[in-house]
């Protein structure tokens, strides 16, 4: 790809995120692998595309995310801010203990709505 930065390895960009709309006004974005500096821009783009006034709830489903770094955390902090502007609820579901640890290190866990599973996230 000509637009890629010099030396940047390509791949997996079309399989990293599963995006679904289980009901009107609800969007679920599920990363399928670790969220780090190489992948968080993809998550950020997806969130920006779906974080709009017609989206009542945006769920980031983290069941398959075993690792997240501060770039992923920054992406979610930005999403939380955007959600306040668009009146969209941001919900994080199925967060594992290692991902929760980075929220705790940054002392951000209390600022997010974090639920145990997708069923709870989709409850009206």
């Amino acid at each position: 790809m000509d637009s890629a930065p010099k030396g940047y390895a390509m791949g997996e960009s079309d399989t990293f995120l599963i995006i679904s709309e289980p009901s009107t006004g609800v969007v679920v974005i599920a990363p399928t692998a670790d969220v780090d500096m190489s992948r968080s821009p993809m998550l950020r783009t997806a969130i920006q595309q779906h974080m709009k006034p017609s989206t009542e709830t945006l769920v980031v489903h983290l069941e398959d995310v075993g690792y997240m770094d501060s770039s992923g955390l920054a992406t979610l902090v930005e999403a939380m801010r955007t959600g306040k502007a668009t009146n969209t609820n941001l919900v994080l579901s199925a967060m594992g203990p290692k991902v929760l640890a980075i929220f705790e290190i940054a002392r951000l866990e209390s600022f997010f709505t974090i639920v145990a599973g997708i069923d709870e996230a989709l409850q009206p």
Partner: peptide, 22 residues
């Protein structure tokens, strides 16, 4: 957590030190 610290340090080198020259 150790791998997180290493990752963050490397990200800082890439992002701020090398200004995203890969």
């Amino acid at each position: 957590k150790i791998s997180l610290a290493l990752d963050e340090a490397l990200c800082n080198v890439i992002r701020h030190g090398y200004t995203k020259a890969f």
